[in-house]
Amino acid sequence: MSTVVDTVKTIVDPILETHHFELADIEFVKEGGSWYLRVYIDKPGGITLNECVLVSEALSEKLDAMSPDPIPQAYFLEVSSPGAERPLKNQRDFENALGEYIHISLFKKQAGQKVFEGFLKALDADTLTLEVKDKARRKTLTFERAGIANARLAIEF
């Protein structure tokens, strides 16, 4: 349903710009027989519940006023923060995560593993470099971006 996502993005972007928020992601998914339109927003320092409500009300009002209805089926609208372990999906997300502790999952094993956590030290169009713990030492590993299945911010323990 990328047309719903594209439509919602064009509607929500000006709302977010007005308040200096950023769009983290949009999902339109069917779960357990119900449709959910999820809009994830953020800002430096984190987003508040009141800010989510503000965006939800403004977006709902704009969607309800559109004719023809861009989302003909019934759905639940959820506007929330992407959370402390937000996914890293695009170049801007990775750039904002430089120096941060992240989690990556690979399509194929590298150094005998498919999952790594460490500090994102460098990034270019084709690779990213993590500083990972290896027992009591730290080592630097470089990964092909095309080989990364998932990436997200992580909490270091």
Rank of each mutant, 00 (worst) to 15 (best):
E100R: 14
L98G: 03
A111N: 04
E144M: 04
D126G: 09
T142C: 07
D134L: 15
D124F: 11
T142P: 12
R86Q: 11
L88N: 05
I148A: 00
F94H: 02
I148C: 00
N96E: 09
Y101H: 12
F143E: 00
Q91Y: 12
E144L: 01
L120I: 05
S105F: 07
F119W: 08
G112P: 09
L88W: 11
E95G: 05
T127G: 08
E95F: 03
L88D: 02
L98K: 09
D134Y: 15
Q110E: 02
D93W: 14
D126I: 07
D124E: 06
A146I: 08
R145D: 00
R86K: 15
R138P: 07
L128Q: 08
P87W: 10
A125D: 12
F119K: 06
K108G: 02
Q110L: 00
F107N: 04
G99M: 00
G99W: 04
R92A: 11
D126H: 12
F94K: 03
E144C: 01
I104R: 05
D134N: 13
R138I: 03
K135H: 14
A97R: 05
N90V: 11
R137K: 15
S105M: 02
L141W: 14
E100P: 12
L120T: 03
D126A: 10
V115R: 08
A122Y: 10
R137E: 15
L106H: 04
D134I: 14
E117T: 10
F94S: 00
R92D: 10
N90S: 06
A136I: 15
L128V: 12
L141F: 12
R137M: 15
A146F: 05
A149Q: 01
K109M: 05
V115N: 06
P87S: 07
A111T: 03
A122G: 13
K114H: 05
G112M: 04
E144F: 01
A136L: 15
A149L: 05
A136Q: 14
T140A: 06
K121C: 07
F107Y: 09
E85I: 13
R138N: 07
Y101W: 08
Y101F: 13
K121R: 15
D124H: 11
L120P: 03
I102N: 02
D93P: 09
N150V: 04
F116K: 06
A151V: 03
R145C: 05
